[in-house]
């Protein structure tokens, strides 16, 4: 009897309708940009995208306080990399005890952004930054290294190049 009543009187449908109706009202009255929005979408090209802290973006070489590259060429990252996108050439530098990377090449077109290199690094000298707008038109643009204005690996994560935030 109870089951029959529940079938005949659509309480559950009313409940669902009330939930979606509440969402509709909240979004409808806050959809205007001046108010605090209730919707969960980010309007990315106009608004800077909000990146989660654990997002794995482009590989970046870090420098310490003196501006020295932290990498000591232990080759742990090169060894652990499953797609072998990192190539390091050891070298010496004046006034530095530790080895110094003469070349640190990163072929981003094959990178799977697994973060093994960062985990294996004993000196915290590389990270995956928060840059995600990585598309490019030429294959050469994906081979990053230590030289070149656009292609060096020191730059911190830039603001998205496609974002057109105006306020």
């Amino acid at each position: 009897m109870n089951k029959l009543l529940r079938t005949l009187i659509p309480f559950d449908i009313a409940k669902g309708l009330s939930i979606t109706g509440k969402h509709f009202c909240k979004v409808f009255f806050t959809a205007n940009r001046r108010k605090v929005p209730f919707h969960i979408v980010s309007e990315y090209p106009e608004v800077v995208a909000k990146i989660q802290p654990r997002f794995r973006g482009r590989l970046t070489l870090l420098k310490d306080e003196q501006g020295e590259i932290k990498c000591v060429c232990c080759l742990a990252c090169e060894k652990i990399c499953p797609t072998q996108v990192i190539t390091i050439e050891k070298g010496k530098k004046e006034g530095r005890k530790m080895p110094f990377p003469v070349r640190y090449d990163f072929e981003m077109e094959r990178c799977i952004f697994c973060e093994f290199c960062v985990e294996s690094c004993g000196f915290d000298s590389i990270i995956l930054n928060h840059q995600f707008e990585l598309a490019a038109y030429n294959r050469e643009d994906f081979s990053l290294g230590m030289e070149g204005a656009m292609q060096n690996m020191y730059d911190p994560s830039p603001v998205g190049k496609f974002s057109v935030a105006d306020d």
Binding site: F24, V27, H39, I40, V41, P45, F162
Partner: peptide
């Protein structure tokens, strides 16, 4: 409305061009 019901904004742009 379908967007608002699901906490989205519905259609707000044409293509994806900038």
């Amino acid at each position: 409305v379908l967007g608002y019901l699901q906490q989205r904004l519905g259609s707000t742009r044409v293509a994806s061009g900038h």
